[in-house]
Amino acid sequence: MAESVVVEGGTIDCGHSGRISLVHVSTRLTVRNKGVLLLEQEKNLPFLPAAPPTSPLPLQCTHVTTSQVPLPAPCITKAASSGVATKLTVGKAAVLLRLAGGATTTPVANAVPPTDSTWKVSAAGQSRLTAV
């Protein structure tokens, strides 16, 4: 079944309630002037607050350290393990779809176990272009 292609302004959520808005996308294919998210562009995205902060404030990743005074240990996305288009590519790179998701990790050494979690697209950012 065809699903919406993820574009700039779409959102990704982590398993610790964090949310980020997508800004690093390809402009080689656009939908209403918003570039699409290609495979590999979803990797290493940190669930950190925007700088400067947007209004309203995005949901924060709640993952913390095991320190006596817990410190943030935000998730970082790994490669998509689902929701990758098989029929639509841009320069040989597949686009990501609304059902995309994968694992996360944190680079913080003393993060509360488990250090790995998951991420998923919570909003594609458009519904005009679909793919399988």
Rank of each mutant, 00 (worst) to 15 (best):
T11S: 15
L22W: 04
G102H: 06
A85C: 10
S26H: 07
K43W: 04
T118L: 14
G35I: 01
G83P: 10
R32Y: 13
C75V: 04
V6N: 14
P58Y: 01
L38S: 06
E3D: 13
L29D: 05
T115I: 08
T62S: 14
P113L: 11
T106W: 10
L99S: 13
L99A: 13
A73N: 11
A93R: 14
L39N: 07
T54E: 09
Q126W: 01
L45D: 04
P53A: 04
V6C: 12
E8N: 10
V69D: 09
L96Y: 03
A131L: 07
S17P: 00
S55C: 02
R128N: 08
A79W: 09
P53H: 01
A79C: 02
L97D: 13
H24V: 09
A111E: 06
V84D: 03
V84M: 07
L129K: 00
E3G: 06
A103V: 12
G18T: 06
T77I: 13
V95E: 01
L71A: 15
V112K: 07
V31E: 01
T115C: 01
L129A: 04
T106A: 11
K87C: 13
V112P: 03
L88H: 13
A111Q: 10
I20C: 07
V6I: 12
S117D: 11
E40P: 01
A124I: 08
A103K: 13
V64E: 09
G15K: 10
T65A: 04
T115P: 04
T130K: 15
S117P: 10
E42G: 01
P107R: 03
L71I: 00
V90I: 04
A100N: 14
R32P: 02
V7W: 04
A131N: 14
I76L: 15
F47P: 05
L48P: 00
V31R: 02
V90Y: 00
L39C: 01
T27W: 05
A2H: 12
L48W: 02
H16D: 12
V121W: 11
C61W: 14
P113S: 04
K43G: 10
L99H: 07
R32N: 13
G35L: 00
A79P: 10
P107W: 00
K78R: 13
G15R: 05
P74M: 07
C61I: 01
S55P: 08
R19I: 02
E40D: 15
L96W: 00
D116I: 12
Q41W: 09
V112E: 06
S67C: 10
A50P: 09
S81A: 14
A2G: 10
R32F: 07
T105N: 10
C61D: 11
T62D: 03
P58E: 09
S4V: 05
S21P: 01
T66D: 00
T115L: 07
A131D: 15
R98N: 09
L97K: 07
P72C: 00
P70M: 03
A2M: 13
P53V: 14
R32S: 14
F47Y: 11
A103Q: 15
R98T: 02
C14L: 00
D13C: 08
V31L: 05
A123I: 11
S4L: 02
P74E: 08
A100H: 13
Q60K: 15
L59Q: 12
R128D: 11
P56C: 05
T11P: 06
V132L: 03
S55A: 09
V90G: 00
T130G: 06
Q126E: 11
L39Y: 11
S26P: 05
H16Q: 13
G10P: 05
T65I: 04
V69M: 12
